[in-house]
Design a protein around this nucleic acid. Structure first.
Length: 462
RNA sequence: GGCCCGUUCGUCUAGUGGUUAGGACACCACCCUUUCAAGGUGGUUACACGGGUUCGAGUCCCGUACGGGUCACCA
C-alpha cells in the first residue's frame, strides 16, 4: 500500500515554524517513501478560521516548496458526512445521547477535582433509559471501552499503553448538531486514505480516543508518529512565522534545513539539501525528546546556504530585497559578480541587499567614525593621485586597479589600509564593503571618479 | 492532581554494554588579512540523581527529581 500522509492545519493564523516542521516531516516521509502528501484545512471553527490565514498557510507551504499531491480537503465541506457517521454510531449503539447541560458538566468536573479525582465525564447517560421528552437538547457521546488497555505502536515513541478507564466518553456531536474535532479527524483521515498520521506530541491523548473511533466506524487504524514539541517559539506573535523569515532575508533551503534538524539528525551532518533530506529522512529516526528553537543556529544555517547557492540564483532572489531599498535592477552579470563578492559576508538577503546598495546608489552620508579614523592628512596626497590616475587606466579591472593603487601606496610609503579605506568611504560612505579593488571596478570608472571628488572635501576638516 | 512522554556540553545532537563520550552553533585565544566577513588552528563546557543487572553501563531494569504534554459542547 502506498504511504499517504497529510498536514492538517487550522486556518487561524500564519504558518509558524512548529507547524512548518510538522508539514515538512509529513512531506519528507511521503517523498521518501514514494507516497502522497495531502493537505486538509480544518476550518470547522468558524469563529477563528479566516480566509487570510488559509491563504497565508498555502503561501508559506508554496514558498517552502512543499507541494501537495491531491486536491485540498476543506473540512467544512464535509459536515453532512460527519453528522451522518455520528448518527450511524448512535443507531448502532456505539454512541449515546447525553442530556447533561454544560453547567452540569462544569459542576461535575469541579466536584471531581475538589475530591481529587480526574475531571472526566462520569457516564451518567450511558445506561440511563429514562430519556427526557423529545426536544430536550442533547449531545452525542462516543462509548469508550470501560476496561482493558489501549496500546499504540508509535513510529517515534514506540509502544505506549493507556488504561481505558482514563478514556472518557467524548462528545462527537454537539447539542447544536455540529460534530467535534476528534470525531471529524477520524472521518476525514479515513476518507483521505491516510496511512500514517504524523503530528505533534500534544495530540497524543487524542490518539487513544481516536483509535476506538476508527474501529467503531469500521476503518483501519493508521500508524501514528508523534513528533517531539519544539520549545522557545511563542515569544511574539508574528515573529516565528515562515513568512517572517522570508521577509528578513532567509532562504527556503535554510529554513527547511534548520527545522529538519529539530528532532532529527543523520550522524554528524549539519547541512542538507532538500534532495538529501528526501533521501535520508525517516520518521523512524526522529528523536523522542523535545528541542529548543535556536535563532542563532538558524542564522548560521542560512549563512551556509547563502554561501552554497549559485550566485546566479541568489541574484534573482535578491531583486525584491534590492527593490525594497529603492534599487530597481536585473540579475545581470554585474549583479551576479557583486553577489559573488557578497556571498562570503552576508547572513541574509537583507544583509546582502544592503551590501550591494553602493553599486547602485551614491552614499547619502559619510559614517562619522569611519571618517574620523581613516581620513587623515597623511593619505590625502595618495588619494588625490589615485583620483587623477583613474581616468588614464587602460582597463578598469580589479587587477589593473590593484597594481595602480599599490604602486601609489608604495610610493607614499603607506600601508594599503591607509590608502584603501578613504576610497572605500568615498564609494560607500562606510568603512565596510567587498574587497576594495572589486568594489571600485563594480562602481565603474566615471562613478568612482565622481564619488572620490565628492568626498575630497572630507580632507578639509581632517 | 490523574494519565502520557521526555532527561548527553549553554543550545541542536552522535552514541544502541567496553569510546580519551564525537560533531555543530555560541564563546575564548591565536593565525590569515586592504575594511567587514569568511576561513584555519587550538581551547573551556555534558551523560539529572539514587539503586540495581553485569567482569564492565550514557547505553538494560526500578525508583526519585526536574521538565513537557493532556484532561472543553476548541482545533
Amino acid at each position: 500500500m502506498t504511504h499517504r500522509l497529510r498536514f492538517a492545519p487550522s486556518p487561524t493564523g500564519n504558518l509558524h515554524i512548529g507547524g512548518a516542521r510538522t508539514a515538512l516531516f509529513n512531506w519528507l516521509q511521503a517523498r521518501h517513501a514514494g507516497g502522497k502528501f495531502l493537505l486538509r484545512i480544518e476550518d470547522t471553527d468558524i469563529a477563528r478560521s479566516t480566509e487570510e490565514s488559509r491563504q497565508a498557510i498555502l503561501e508559506a507551504l508554496d514558498w517552502l516548496g512543499l507541494d501537495i499531491d491531491e486536491d485540498i480537503v476543506l473540512q467544512s465541506t464535509r459536515r453532512d458526512v460527519h453528522v451522518a457517521a455520528a448518527l450511524r454510531l448512535l443507531e448502532e449503539g456505539k454512541a449515546y445521547r447525553c442530556y447533561c447541560t454544560p453547567e452540569e458538566l462544569q459542576a461535575m468536573r469541579e466536584k471531581a477535582t475538589a475530591e481529587g479525582r480526574s475531571p472526566k465525564y462520569d457516564g451518567t447517560w450511558r445506561n440511563r433509559t429514562d430519556h427526557p421528552p423529545e426536544g430536550t437538547p442533547f449531545t452525542v457521546r462516543f462509548a469508550m471501552p470501560l476496561d482493558g488497555t489501549t496500546v499504540i505502536d508509535d513510529i517515534v515513541l514506540g509502544e505506549i499503553t493507556v488504561p481505558n478507564e482514563e478514556l472518557d466518553d467524548l462528545i462527537i456531536l454537539r447539542s447544536d448538531g455540529t460534530p467535534t474535532y476528534n470525531f471529524v479527524v477520524v472521518c476525514d483521515d479515513a476518507f483521505m486514505g491516510v496511512t500514517t498520521v504524523c503530528r505533534g506530541q500534544d495530540h497524543m491523548s487524542n490518539t487513544f480516543r481516536q483509535f476506538h473511533i476508527y474501529r467503531a466506524l469500521g476503518h483501519e487504524v493508521p500508524r501514528f508518529a508523534h513528533l517531539p514539541l519544539v520549545d522557545g517559539l511563542s515569544k511574539r506573535k508574528g515573529s516565528a512565522s515562515v513568512q517572517h523569515y522570508r521577509d528578513i532575508g532567509y532562504l527556503r533551503e535554510a529554513v527547511i534545513n534548520y527545522i529538519s534538524r529539530l528532532g532529527w539528525s543523520h550522524g554528524d551532518q549539519e547541512i542538507f539539501s532538500v534532495e538529501e533530506l528526501v533521501e535520508k529522512f525517516d520518521l523512524a529516526d526522529v528523536n523522542r525528546s523535545s528541542g529548543k528553537y535556536d535563532e542563532v543556529k538558524m542564522a548560521w544555517v542560512n549563512e551556509q546556504w547563502i554561501k552554497r547557492l549559485p550566485a546566479e540564483e541568489l541574484a534573482v532572489r535578491l531583486l525584491p530585497y534590492l527593490s525594497d531599498l529603492g534599487v530597481e535592477t536585473s540579475a545581470d552579470e554585474r549583479l551576479v559578480s557583486l553577489v559573488r563578492q557578497l556571498q562570503e559576508r552576508s547572513k541574509t538577503l537583507v544583509d546582502m541587499a544592503e551590501g550591494a546598495r553602493f553599486a547602485f546608489q551614491r552614499p547619502t552620508a559619510f559614517d562619522e567614525k569611519a571618517v574620523k579614523k581613516w581620513i587623515k592628512p597623511a593619505s590625502r596626497a595618495a588619494f588625490e593621485e589615485i583620483l587623477a590616475a583613474l581616468p588614464g587606466l587602460d582597463a578598469f579591472t580589479p587587477d589593473e586597479l590593484e597594481a595602480a593603487i599599490k604602486s601609489v601606496a608604495e610610493r607614499h610609503e603607506l600601508g594599503l589600509g591607509k590608502v584603501a579605506q578613504p576610497i572605500r568611504i568615498a564609494l560607500t560612505g562606510t568603512s565596510v564593503s567587498p574587497p576594495i579593488f572589486d568594489a571600485i571596478a563594480i562602481v565603474g570608472r566615471e562613478e568612482t571618479v565622481h564619488r572620490m571628488r565628492a568626498a575630497l572635501h572630507l580632507y578639509d576638516d581632517a
